[in-house]
């Protein structure tokens, strides 16, 4: 298995039955072994990212051609840098919820703020309700020197951007919602 080449595959298409089946059948036909997979459907569009190990003789181009053949799916394949590693940052994982009036540039503002503070966004979900836009971000604050200083900056940012921001440690949500 250590001889395998690790490839990252992304697939995008209008949602319909059979996309996952087509893609994964194609991968197994080429001798690929799936390491991980996430799929999501947004506004009727399907998107999926997969990590798989392939025998050394299989090239990325070959995988891309096989998976895109006879489908409308947009497929892109890249060779991964080394072995897949799951990010673990339990100690510094915080959930930021941000709620504000829906307008252009909200996500850009929030993500720029995080970027400027050296904060990595691990997960992001959002939805619109009437004219209210809600974002949920899972943040890795391991590069943040002082949590208190970050909270102060966040409060200032919230005031400036008109967003109602709440930062809370991820453990709190796990403790209160998981059995």
């Amino acid at each position: 298995m250590t001889q395998d080449q690790i490839m990252v595959i992304s697939v995008m298409d209008r949602d319909r039955p059979g996309i996952v089946a087509n893609v994964t059948e194609g991968i197994s036909a080429l001798g690929g072994n799936l390491a991980d997979l996430r799929e999501s459907v947004l506004c009727g569009y399907f998107t999926m990212i997969l990590v798989a190990g392939f025998p050394p003789e299989v090239s990325a181009e070959q995988v891309e051609q096989t998976l895109a053949k006879e489908t409308s799916s947009k497929v892109s394949v890249s060779l991964a840098d080394g072995l897949p590693v799951e990010q673990e940052c339990k100690e510094h994982a915080y959930v930021l919820s941000a709620v504000g009036e829906d307008r252009i540039g909200l996500v850009a503002q929030v993500s720029r703020f995080c970027c400027e503070k050296g904060v990595n966004i691990l997960d992001f979900a959002s939805y619109v309700e009437v004219s209210k836009y809600t974002m949920m971000l899972l943040l890795d604050l391991s590069n943040t020197q002082s949590l208190d200083a970050f909270k102060i900056d966040l409060a200032k940012f919230g005031e400036k951007s008109g967003l109602n921001l709440v930062l809370q440690h991820n453990d709190i949500f796990r403790a209160t919602n998981e059995i």
Binding site: S97, D123, A125, M136, L138, Q168, I172, F173, T176, N177
Partner: peptide, 16 residues
């Protein structure tokens, strides 16, 4: 990630 309604329930509990 935990569902957003669960997050808001907890946020309300802590903040409000």
């Amino acid at each position: 990630m935990i569902r957003s309604d669960q997050i808001f329930k907890t946020v309300k509990m802590i903040q409000k």
